[in-house]
């Protein structure tokens, strides 16, 4: 069951731009709920990222255990933040519309699609990408199993399959071949590695290893 968020303690307005904030306040004047500006706990050392016509917004986010303080165009998706700003290109852009699963990452431990997640909405969230799942010299059990079962060909859907697979097991939806097939169906693979992927996941699940 979802937990409660203490709403009253939440920052009201994340715009760093004072002028905009004032404009906003004027719009809402008389409502007695003029929002207060938010400068964030980590206003120092903010990494300025090329913005644009949208007012940049501050964002504090943890990516693979590293806390980042950023200033970004609110239009930037979590996927484009990872790939284009943070050089974490392991997360793939397949369709950009939530229809392929290649961009799957973990946010606060849950598998989500980073292409449909606005980066600014990930304030204080913990994001784990494929780069955080395992390393070349210390592969995650699923990564090892994917290699063993040849659960890919071109490799482009693979990071998404792996991130999704880890959660599929954690969610308790990897009890059988049929269950894995159903709960992994949000991850398309055009090379058709499906049976090998399913076998890899089943093996890791049955091994009881921590994922």
């Amino acid at each position: 069951m979802a937990e409660e968020f203490p709403a009253e303690n939440e920052p009201a307005l994340l715009h760093e731009n004072r002028r905009l904030f004032l404009k906003q306040s004027v719009t809402l004047a008389g409502l007695a709920l003029a929002p207060t500006p938010f400068f964030g706990p980590a206003a120092l050392n903010v990494e300025e990222i090329p913005g644009g016509d949208a007012e940049n917004v501050k964002l504090s986010i943890s990516v693979n255990g590293v806390k980042k303080s950023l200033s970004i165009d609110p239009r930037v998706t979590l996927l484009d933040l990872l790939r284009e700003r943070l050089a974490l290109t392991g997360t793939k852009k397949g369709c950009d519309f939530g229809q392929c699963g290649a961009c799957t990452v973990h946010v606060d431990g849950q598998r989500v699609l980073s292409c449909l997640s606005l980066a600014v909405m990930q304030q204080d969230k913990k994001v784990v990408t494929i780069e955080g799942l395992g390393k070349l010299d210390q592969l995650h059990p699923l990564q090892e199993a994917f290699i063993k079962h040849d659960g890919f060909q071109c490799g482009y859907c693979t990071p998404g399959q792996l991130m999704s697979a880890a959660c599929c097991i954690r969610e308790g939806k990897a009890g059988s071949e049929a269950e894995i097939q159903e709960y992994m169906s949000g991850n398309l693979c055009r090379c058709g590695a499906y049976p090998n992927i399913v076998n890899a996941i089943l093996e890791v699940k049955n091994s009881g290893q921590k994922v």
Binding site: R83, K93, I130, I147, K148, D150, F152
Partner: peptide, 21 residues
């Protein structure tokens, strides 16, 4: 033989065309 580029593909370190910096 296991796929020789398996490790870079499963760790997301394989660089596809749009991924050069």
């Amino acid at each position: 033989l296991d796929r020789v580029d398996g490790p870079v593909k499963v760790t997301g370190t394989a660089k596809y065309s749009a991924e050069y910096q």
